[in-house]
Simulated scan of single mutants.
Amino acid sequence: MSLQNGSERGGESAVDRAEQGLITTADGRPCCAWQAQMPDYHDHEWGRPVVDDRLLFEKVCLEGFHSGMSWQLIYNKRDNFRRAFEGFNFHRVAAYGEPEVARLLADSGIVRNRAKILSAINNAQRAIELQEEAGSLAAWFWQFEPTAQQRPASVDLHYWQQVKTSPQAEAMSKALKKRGWSWVGPVTAYSLMQALGLVNDHLDGCCRRVECEAERSQLMRPG
């Protein structure tokens, strides 16, 4: 996900915020600049902890479709993806065969990439195996949450622009690939960690950073 500075009134302070990758919303909240493009996702989802297996699988699939494409494009098609993949019920998706693949390839509401569609079906099958292995998908994925000491002292614009993965994301990617998952490279794995709330990468100064951190601190980790 790329940060783009939104236009804003406010003179010198607005310039300072833009240099920090922040904007001020119409109701006066300081937020990551990309909030202007996807306010609901920024405010209510991204960085907030996810422990529901169905939703977790949805995010894995959408991050796979996101690879090499704009996240905003995928996000705008999310309802279509949910319809096409039966709410991302991975037990149902795991049973898909050529008739379902043909249906999905004919669906103009989603990204019609055969390799990514087959990957979603494969990953649904692997998700069932992983759920049986670990008890839940959430229990397995959350083991890769970095410790406070492994996180940066400051999540600033420089960090955002430079860091695309992490040792924990690389370990997650390697472990998933070993179990037969696809479209789960280290960059995708780190993006998934952000989406699942395993890390809180809202920028310093963003009002949602504090809220996400509070939710993370109160979360009972699965396991």
Rank of each mutant, 00 (worst) to 15 (best):
R151C: 13
V111N: 03
A102M: 14
A127C: 04
W140V: 00
S166Y: 04
D52C: 00
K164Y: 02
V101A: 01
V60T: 01
Q150H: 10
T188Q: 04
T165P: 08
E211N: 07
M1F: 06
C31Q: 00
D79K: 11
A139C: 14
L22V: 08
A175G: 00
A120F: 13
F144K: 03
A120W: 15
A169D: 08
A138S: 15
C206Y: 01
K174V: 10
V111M: 12
I121E: 03
W160Q: 11
V184T: 14
A84D: 12
K174R: 12
L137A: 10
G64M: 06
W140E: 03
Y159N: 01
S173K: 08
S166I: 09
S108V: 10
P186T: 05
A33C: 13
Y41S: 04
L55M: 14
A18M: 04
L137N: 10
W140P: 15
V15F: 08
K174S: 09
A195R: 05
A33T: 05
H66M: 15
R112S: 02
Y96I: 09
W34L: 10
D27L: 14
A33Y: 00
H158Y: 00
P30F: 00
K177N: 05
N123C: 02
Q168N: 03
R151Q: 12
W181A: 04
M69L: 13
R208Y: 08
A195T: 15
M193H: 07
F144N: 09
Q218S: 14
Y75P: 06
D204G: 00
A84W: 04
C207L: 13
Y159D: 13
N89K: 13
R17K: 14
M193L: 14
Y159P: 12
P39R: 05
E86D: 09
G223W: 09
T147Q: 07
Q143W: 14
A139Q: 05
R216W: 01
D16H: 07
M193S: 03
H91S: 02
K178V: 13
Y159Q: 01
G109R: 02
C31M: 15
Y159H: 09
L22M: 01
R9A: 06
P99R: 14
Q143T: 04
P222T: 13
L55A: 10
G6K: 07
A127K: 02
N5E: 12
A94D: 13
V163Q: 12
Q35P: 02
F81Q: 06
